[in-house]
């Protein structure tokens, strides 16, 4: 564990050094991600400014939902997104060979080798939105509830990582996974705009169980507003454990199927 942490730290240092070589891109990341965030907020404002309540959710809950999604998205972007998205190419062009032959988990290295500090400001902005949402609701939030909320956000970040990874290790088994990426984009888009509480029937089944993006921001929002039942809380934790287990198993199985690429 200590060795892994030391190695992650070395990867982060390496990435920062790399970013600083390209001075413009180092500072540009702050600018680009900040702009994306603002566009996202404006889009949400345009959609929800005319309504106070959707499916029983008030404006305050909706704002917390948006803030929570931004928070999980920012964590994803800062920590692993830029590493995980390189996996399909590394599988296809055989670069994975170098990861497999080194005495640290290839997944650990792939996950943390492209951290992106450019998205850190998004974390602070997300906290601002969530705080604003809570103030609109006029509810009292205990420190214990805040801690629970933070843990749930982190758990849901792990869930996002699991799904992101699952969809990107498909090339270990098949030639192309391009269509899965498109499916992921569409489902994420829906989950970003529509809280899980509004989903019904087959949509709920897909976004709560098959590719459970629907619970990622919904459950923490419900938790902090004290509307998440113990049953759904257990379900949320259970699904993350299940997906983490599945991802680990499929990754290991995929490595057995790995064919590398001819040189």
């Amino acid at each position: 564990m200590k060795r892994n942490l030391k190695f992650i730290l070395a990867l982060i240092k390496m990435k920062l050094s790399h970013m600083m070589v390209f001075r413009l891109s180092f500072f540009g990341a702050f600018f680009v991600d900040g702009s994306l965030f603002l566009i996202q907020i404006l889009t949400f404002q345009a959609i929800y400014s005319q309504v106070d309540s959707i499916g029983g959710w008030s404006r305050g809950e909706m704002i917390i939902f948006i803030g929570t999604f931004s928070m999980i998205n920012a964590l994803n972007m800062v920590i692993f997104f830029f590493g995980v998205i390189t996996i399909p190419d590394k599988i296809k062009n055989g670069q994975l060979d170098h990861y497999i032959t080194k005495p640290v988990s290839p997944l650990l290295r792939l996950t943390f080798e492209n951290v992106n500090p450019g998205s850190i400001p998004l974390l602070f902005l997300s906290v601002g939105i969530i705080t604003y949402g809570i103030s609109l609701l006029e509810i009292t939030v205990t420190p214990l509830r805040v801690i629970g909320y933070i843990i749930l956000v982190l758990i849901m970040t792990v869930l996002w990582y699991d799904i992101e990874l699952l969809l990107r290790i498909i090339p270990l088994f098949t030639v192309s996974a391009y269509n899965f990426s498109r499916l992921e984009d569409s489902l994420l888009d829906v989950s970003m705009k529509i809280p899980g509480v509004l989903l019904k029937g087959v949509f709920k089944l897909i976004l709560y169980l098959v590719i459970p993006y629907g619970i990622m921001s919904t459950f923490p929002t419900q938790f902090i507003t004290n509307t998440l039942s113990p049953g759904w809380l257990a379900y949320g934790c259970g699904i993350v454990i299940l997906f983490t287990y599945l991802t680990g198993r499929i990754w290991k199985l995929g490595l057995k199927y790995y064919k590398s690429a001819s040189s």
Binding site: F7, M14, S17, G94, Q95, H98
Partner: peptide
């Protein structure tokens, strides 16, 4: 297939391998 980090110096790669 190179193991070196093209944008950085060789010394940077050596340090990462030391940790690896």
């Amino acid at each position: 297939k190179s193991q070196l980090f093209f944008e950085l110096s060789a010394n940077d790669t050596f340090l990462l391998f030391k940790e690896l």
